[in-house]
Design a protein around this nucleic acid. Sequence first.
DNA 1: TAATAATAGTTGTCATGACAAATATATTCC
DNA 2: GGAATATATTTGTCATGACAACTATTATTA
Lengths: 147, 147
Amino acid sequence: MDEYDEAKKIGSYLERTSRLVKLRYLQAFAQLGVDITPEQWVMLDSLYHRNGQSQTELAGDSYKNAPTVSRIIDLLEKKGFVERQRFENDRRRYKIFLTTAGTAAVEKVQPAVSSLRQQSWENLSDADYTDFFRIINQVFENLNGGN
Amino acid sequence: MDEYDEAKKIGSYLERTSRLVKLRYLQAFAQLGVDITPEQWVMLDSLYHRNGQSQTELAGDSYKNAPTVSRIIDLLEKKGFVERQRFENDRRRYKIFLTTAGTAAVEKVQPAVSSLRQQSWENLSDADYTDFFRIINQVFENLNGGN
DNA sequence: TAATAATAGTTGTCATGACAAATATATTCC
DNA sequence: GGAATATATTTGTCATGACAACTATTATTA
């Protein structure tokens, strides 16, 4: 039962930490007067690094599914951070582009992101950092395969 | 930018792994014909180990907030897995009790939970296991303090 | 070419989670 | 004792995410 309790926690600890990270991002953005959620930021940031992606590409990049991306892009479009343009050769697809305001939002928020990142890793070593990503990716792979 | 990209991923990797874990739980429960979500299971499991908790206690245990717990208990009650009983001395509070069906559901699902847990840690060492919890808890603490 | 299948995206429904505001009951303090 | 506070829970609103079903467009293939 001790072992069982300990084990239960992987999901719970992942979940609560993930939620806390997202909450801190949300609060940081709000404090800067940038009205976006962490998930919206992930999209904007992805576009900042590669503009003009389709929704399917954005979904793959963030491991989100199509409906989720569709709705996030809707919101970002309403807020004026992003624009949909149809592909020339394939009228099913959109290319999503950051607007000037979208680019500005990403840049405004960047120091806060760096700061939060730094804060996350306080009291932890470089080895911890490396290990953490290795382990969490292995867990992801373990559960993502076939099954 | 390389450093920046790497860093961005802590939130994303936490999030995607957390989501995958929850999805696998959901699928495992469904396959067993047990109609509960991972979050509902966390509540049931908490009650299985300590029956009669109040919603506030359940919230603290799972780091969820009061409205979320209230709604999860609503659903579990509708499904017949849980019962609300008022405290004798404090009529604001409920004690939440597992029903027979609730207990049965927890027990039915337990092997699948163990199995998923084992699968999560394949290709990882005992040290990885220990490190992972140490690191993720430190990250949680880093972000949870004051700020 | 016409029928079929595949792909891109949207919409509907439900559960979770964050926040604010509400209700009901208990506690504190003057 | 009664007013102000605090606590336990509920309800409303919105965003995200999972799934299924849908539309529109493109590709395949018989």
